[in-house]
Every structure is written in C-alpha cells, then in structure tokens.
Amino acid sequence: GRSAAQKAVIRVIPLKVEPILLEGEFADVAEVTPAEGKLLQSHPLSLCNTSEDEHPESGFITIVKLEQPDRDPNPCLSLANKAKLAGERGARAILFDITDDESAADQLRKPRGLSQPVVLIRGHDAELLMGVVNKNREAHVKIEVKEPPAWPDYD
C-alpha cells in the first residue's frame, strides 16, 4: 500500500498577531524539504503561461485556493505544472488548499522532483490559513518536516 504522506508543520506568523500552527502534507510531486517566506495568495488562473499579471519579487510562499473541478473545466495547466510555474516565478514553496478539490492530492502524487516543496492543506487548517489571507494581514510562513513520534522504549 501507499506509504502515508509526509506531514508538514506550517507555522503562520502574521505581523503583530499570535502565530498559528497548522498541519498539511507534502505532495510527492516535489522534494520534502523545509521552506520559509512571505505569504502571498495566487489566483488559480494566475498560474497559466498566458497570464501576465505583475509577478512579486521572489522568496515568497504562495497559497492557492483550488476551486471545485467543475468550475474550471479546461485548466490551462496540470496542477504539477502550475506548481512548477510558481517555483519558476520565485515561490519557495506552494501551498494548495484542496478542501474543494480532493482530486488534487492524486494529481500531485506522481514524483516530478520539483525543487520547491508542495504542501496540501485542507479542512479547518485551510480555513484558518485562508482567514489570514482574507484579512490581508502580512504574514511570514515557515514550513517544517514533521518528525514521526519517537518509539517508546520497552527495555
């Protein structure tokens, strides 16, 4: 069977507000590695080759809220290529909120060796993160690899 996805700890540090600790999972499409940077939202349609919106300076961590698949029947790129494009545009990591599109997890399971980590977040954790985005409060994000619990000693 498929090994459980590597968990990610996402530390969101909004300016002048208490940090928030969230959990996600690393997608196998990319390396499992820590990352940190300024949080920026990207519209799903901004990650298309034809899109010419202003690209922020590099060194950010982007959050993409995926919509239900039927709302974008002809996506311009696959999710893996959207993640790749985000990395090429300077993102240090890509967070996908897959609450409304669970199929994204399967689409991002095939290893592609992308160097910027791709982290999937859903449910309550995603709601908290999008709450920070919605308040448009500048925030720094640290993504860490969650260590598996140490096995108790039975000596």
Partner: peptide, 18 residues
Amino acid sequence: LSCKPRLFFVLERIGMKQ
C-alpha cells in the same frame, strides 16, 4: 473565476491577496 460575455478577466493584487 470567469466573466460575463465581452468582459475582460484581469488579476488584481491587493497586498497579499490576488
């Protein structure tokens, strides 16, 4: 996510949001 006919879709960045 999509526009009514004849209108142009534009991405707008406002601080952290897009």
